[in-house]
Structures are given as structure tokens and as C-alpha cells.
């Protein structure tokens, strides 16, 4: 079970108040996590990836095990500690504005 931490705006959009537990089949990548997240919470569809390009939105960041893995690609396996549930997968709105 992977634990995903969402920013407040997406928690309210999904109608949840806490972190999300996700079962992700196959190789666990940021893209697979987003797929599973959208399947479980359809209102989130299109909020993390641009529907036109399939790319991560530029103000969305992925953090794992204390590292920013946003630029490693949607198809690159994430750290084992996140896969095993020992560490959460953070989806973060980029720091911008005041």
C-alpha cells in the first residue's frame, strides 16, 4: 500500500481530508500512481497531468524519500521505501506566489 500526500486544493476536490492509500499494480512509477489516483478519485483527472500532452503540470512536483523526483519522468520506478509504504509519496503544488 502506497501512501500519497495531496495538496489541500486536491484533497478538497477529491472530497477527502487525509492522506490516500493506494494499491498500484505492476511497476510503481509516478505515472502509475497518478493513474491509480485518478481511478480512485475521478475528480482529480487532469489536475496533475495536462490532458492534451499527458505531461506533468509544470507547477506540480513529486517528492519521495526527501528528494524531488519530478524531473525523472512519469515512467521511472520510484524508491523502494515508497513502494513498501515506509515513506509517503508527496504530490506538491510548486512553491510560487506569497
Amino acid at each position: 500500500m502506497i501512501t500519497v500526500v495531496l495538496p489541500a486544493q486536491l484533497r478538497s476536490l477529491a472530497g477527502i481530508t487525509d492522506d490516500v492509500g493506494l494499491d498500484v499494480a505492476g511497476t510503481v512509477t509516478p505515472g502509475a500512481i497518478v493513474d491509480a489516483l485518478e481511478a480512485k478519485y475521478p475528480p482529480l483527472k487532469g489536475t496533475l497531468r495536462d490532458p492534451a500532452t499527458g505531461r506533468r503540470r509544470s507547477f506540480v512536483r513529486f517528492f519521495a524519500c526527501g528528494a524531488d523526483i519530478s524531473h525523472e519522468g512519469l515512467d521511472v520506478p520510484i524508491p523502494e521505501a515508497v513502494v513498501l509504504g515506509a515513506q509517503p509519496f508527496y504530490i506538491v503544488g510548486a512553491m510560487a506566489g506569497g
Binding site: P7, Q9, L10, L13, P43, G46, T47, L48, D50, P51, R57, F59, V60, G93, A94, A96
Partner: peptide, 8 residues
């Protein structure tokens, strides 16, 4: 809509 998360 949201500058970070697109259109809903």
C-alpha cells in the same frame, strides 16, 4: 480553475 492544477 487553478494555475497549478488546471481546469475543473
Amino acid at each position: 480553475s487553478h494555475g497549478w492544477f488546471g481546469q475543473v
